[in-house]
Nucleic acid binder design. Sequence first.
DNA 1: TTTAAGATTGAGAAATATTAACAATTCAAA
DNA 2: TTTGAATTGTTAATATTTCTCAATCTTAAA
Lengths: 158, 158
Amino acid sequence: MRREQVMSVAIGREDFKKLLREKGLKVTRQRLVVLEVLAENPQEHLTTEEIYERVKAENPDIGLATVYRTVQLLLELELIDRINLDDGFARYEIGDTQECERHRHHHLICLRCGRVSAFQKDMLEALETGVEAALGFRVTDHEVKLYGICRDCSEKEI
Amino acid sequence: MRREQVMSVAIGREDFKKLLREKGLKVTRQRLVVLEVLAENPQEHLTTEEIYERVKAENPDIGLATVYRTVQLLLELELIDRINLDDGFARYEIGDTQECERHRHHHLICLRCGRVSAFQKDMLEALETGVEAALGFRVTDHEVKLYGICRDCSEKEI
DNA sequence: TTTAAGATTGAGAAATATTAACAATTCAAA
DNA sequence: TTTGAATTGTTAATATTTCTCAATCTTAAA
């Protein structure tokens, strides 16, 4: 098992502005503050409503629809990740820009208290036993989704 | 990597009736037909609406709410699994009764055609490379959720 | 700095999946 | 068969997310 912990690095404010300009998108107060809220709470998994509440603290005039639109935009720019805990809310968390290829975060979901935390990709190798030894999380079930290109699509591609 | 493929075995009609009676629940035409639809399409991932359409073919008088209620019941009885593909629908598939402990299914999601298929748990060991070699599915991303009891909850338990 | 074009926003309406309410029906034990 | 409780179907309600559109803001050019 690799031991180096890759420190997760969220995108900075200036890089975000630059990225928006590169994509021909406009830099707005609303976009900056939504990203800021997510960047300030890197280990939380905020619903749109929760983001809205926190954004309103600094910016009472913002509309809920704008939060929905901005979150959608940040997803497309791959600056944030979405996680679905099947409780009726989509949740969002800041991504990290360290990796050249973007990947989803992985999660530990406590069936008793409901707490959700993320774990580093390099623990995947030892999966459950590794997580239990390192984090004291006793795994009783898991769900894996692999995204990619299926055989049929690969063959059509040629 | 283990090579034996565990054949998945869905619950039979009579076993289902017996289970309902054991739990003090009533055996109804609606419950039987909803389970039957799911059992007849073991590799599909049906939305509630799709189940409703197929159920209506045999049983035109059934109500949509009953399908929602029955699917919920089947989940609680651990006879079916739910998968969320983030398209706004909850999807359901028949589970298998072979394993003594119930586990979620794992899924391959093609980013191009959207097709979703399940894969055997014993492939998890070799994860991405194994899936690619055996199924021709080129993995570009993955999402893992580990469910269990976190350290804090374990300690409180004592 | 001013202007102009187009993107973005805010407010509320609309869409949509799921749940709740409740009277009517059905199941199952006596 | 009777009886009581569980289940069902219909419809209304709920709640998250999207849509609409006029007003506002951003940005590049004048």
